[in-house]
Computed example of a mutant assay.
Amino acid sequence: MTEKLLNHRAEGPTSAPALLLGPSLGTSYALWDKVAPELSATHRVVRWDLPGHGGSPASLIGPGATIGDLADLVLALADSLGVERFAYAGVSLGGAVGLHLALHHPERVSCLAVICSSAHFNGSKPWEERAALVRREGLAKLAETADARWFTPGFTVPRLVADHRDADPEAYAACCDALGAFDLRDRLTEITVPTLLIAGRQDPATPPAHLREIADAVPDAALVELPHASHLAPAERPEAVLTALRTHFDRPAGRGMEVRREVLGDAHVDRAQARQSPFTARYQDFISRYAWGEIWTDPTLSRRERSMITLTALVAHGHYDELAMHVRAARRNGLTPDEIGAVLLQTAVYCGVPAANSAFATAQRVLEEEG
């Protein structure tokens, strides 16, 4: 493990969309043990440890740390893994990191789930007191009350309680500093990432009202309240959390099919779906999820611009059947025949005259058929 990076565990196909999972204060990535393996069937799941927790070095954080500092560590981890854009879910402190990422780095976050967390954690005083206690006495005494703070009566996860006890006191206290200074209530309306809030009805640390406050402010956010769940819902109610996350994180795939139809036309997509077999089903799902659900829905570029880029790439590689399809798509995306011609003329310079010659013939045929 690199000393400058958060300890993490990656699961799932490397070609699948990335999903980062953040922990709660005092826990390790074991918090996600009953959820991450299931999510990894459709995502490249990366769960990470807080500094001084699990396998992450305590030196990654210091006194006076902020949620922004933790978010920067998460982005550094994503960069090291070659992950440019990712879905994100986090619990409590991990959820606060997700809110910060969605607000300050929306180009990196495709979808957000905030679990048993808050836009504020009741001010700085209780966290200053806890940080001072931990720096003075360590974590053994605080870990004795973990079950009451984390779970409904009678439930426990010994591994997580042990992780709490074994965390580095200085790093834990620095995380308390970050929680005490965190307050995004006046900026929640600026978050544009699709957002799901999950609350545990028996959560004493971040009651449902805290999640409802976020849901009411973030545009189009959804809220799910889980009965018989306290603060660490993924450990106590993994099936319910998994169901909510699957529904939420599958939304880009559904949007992808919608965009695919808008750009390529119903007739083309219907033909592709009709030809689908068990052998090609995963590939068709991949196209809808990744190409159309992730790339074509990214608002950074307009559809007109994406059409021009796509036409150029198809000419460069000689994919003229695909080029015909995307000439039609370019017309749907608002390009005029003259603009399409200008794009193809540009390819003559950078892709070669023979390639452009074939491309002009293909495009002329399509434009004549389109009238």
Rank of each mutant, 00 (worst) to 15 (best):
R251K: 13
F249V: 09
V263P: 05
P207Q: 05
L232T: 15
E213N: 08
R260H: 09
R246A: 13
H210M: 10
A205F: 00
R251G: 02
P227Q: 05
S230L: 00
D216M: 07
E258Q: 14
G256T: 01
L226S: 01
S230M: 00
H210F: 12
Q202I: 08
E213R: 07
E239K: 12
D220T: 07
F249D: 08
P227D: 02
P207S: 13
E213Y: 10
G254C: 11
P219M: 08
A215Q: 06
H248M: 04
M257K: 14
D203V: 10
S230Y: 03
H231E: 00
V259A: 09
D216Q: 07
T247R: 14
A217Q: 13
P208G: 10
E239C: 01
D203N: 06
F249T: 11
R261W: 03
P252V: 11
V224N: 01
H231Q: 02
A217G: 04
R237N: 03
A235T: 08
L264D: 00
V224Y: 01
E239W: 10
V218Q: 05
V259C: 04
A209V: 15
P238A: 09
P227A: 09
T247F: 04
V259S: 06
G256A: 12
Q202P: 00
R212G: 00
P238N: 09
A229N: 04
A215D: 02
H228Y: 14
A253W: 15
P234L: 11
E262N: 15
R255T: 14
R251S: 08
R255P: 12
D220F: 07
G254S: 12
P208M: 11
T247W: 10
P252S: 11
S230K: 01
L211V: 03
E239Y: 10
L264T: 01
E225G: 05
A240W: 07
E236R: 05
I214K: 00
P207D: 11
T247Y: 05
V263G: 10
E225W: 00
E239L: 10
P234N: 12
S230Q: 02
A229C: 06
I214W: 03
A253P: 09
L223N: 04
T243P: 07
D203H: 10
R212L: 01
L211M: 14
A205P: 03
A229M: 02
A235E: 06
L242N: 03
P238R: 08
A221T: 04
L242F: 12
L226A: 06
A240Q: 14
L264N: 07
L242S: 10
V263M: 07
D203L: 05
H228N: 15
F249I: 09
P234Y: 13
D220W: 00
T206P: 02
A253S: 15
R212S: 01
L232V: 15
P238M: 05
L211P: 01
P204Q: 10
G254E: 10
F249A: 08
G256Y: 12
A217M: 07
A221D: 02
P227V: 03
R255Q: 15
H231P: 00
L223K: 03
E225T: 05
P208C: 09
D216T: 07
H248D: 05
H210N: 08
R261C: 11
R260D: 03
A221L: 02
A209K: 12
S230R: 12
F249L: 12
